[in-house]
Amino acid sequence: MSTILVITEIQNNDYKKASLEAVSQAGKLAGALGQPVTALIIGAGVQAKSAQLGEYGATTVLTADDAKLANYNPDYYKAVVVKAVQETGAATVIFSATTQGNDLAPRVAATLQTSLAADCIALDATGGKLLAERSLFAGKVFAKIELAAPVRIVSLRPGVFPVIQQSGKTATVKPLSLPALESKLVVKQVSKTGGDKLDVTDADIIVTGGRGMRSADGFKHIEDLAGKLGAAVGATRAVVDSGWRPHSEQVGQTGKVVSPKLYIMCGASGSIQHWAGMSGSKCIVAINKDPEAPIIKRADYSIVGDVFEVLPALTAEVAKIKS
């Protein structure tokens, strides 16, 4: 019998939240598609947590357990997933659109000679058809799409689908017989310390300070918040010109052009030179004492107030939700 195969990810000895979202969504579709849910776990020493996925809607859990699979290698992982698809006869394969999922899903799709509906924000099934929704043109348009492939592969945007847990349910755990694991890729070095200072161009979150931080010392508040958020510190041209921060942190027309998920701007009015460098940010937050500052009108969310009061409070609040 055909099945919905969900590819899960393990992080810090636990399932990624995105994986639980994907299994839950598969569970919701199981009825409509008339297919049970099989979850695939790949890693080294992963059996322990396997049965738990039953609570999220998996009927069966396949484990691919091998020392070689301890870290992600696209060739190994692809071979495992392809084997699982073939063994289960899965007609639907669901990934999470995480860094790993974005790398792995297209390889699996191409190997199975089929297309991939990536980064979906809605997934539904009617009359055996798989319908999805995804954003195009950086969110300017949303499109409903239909998948017509024999094996339908999708990846789901993390954080969009709810996690549905039904305590007590367990899944049947079966080991997957592993395919030959071969790769031409050799990983020479992995760095996950997070201790490295993030560059503004690479960061998902940037906390930027303007002249309103008053001095180089004022940036301590910016650094505290950035540290809690895992964010990079950014600076306006005026700040860099004043010598408070290095030029490498300058965001704007003549500095770095950035497009993070979240951009928090503190004590800066938002001149066009700055705006030109960060207007592509997905979400902009402003903290400024002047309610008339242009940035207040343009930011998605703003707090009118003294940065030296608001920032410590924000840092504390972020610490609360992170723990």
């Binding site: 027309q253 003549t254 052009v257 066009i272 030179q273 705006w275 030109a276 460098g277 207007s279």
Partner: peptide, 19 residues
């Protein structure tokens, strides 16, 4: 090199800030 975004903006959106 700071002129690079200004030139691109003038080319694509006919303003130096690429709005």
């Amino acid at each position: 090199q700071e002129l690079n975004p200004a030139f691109k903006g003038l080319e694509t959106n006919s303003n130096p800030w690429n709005m």
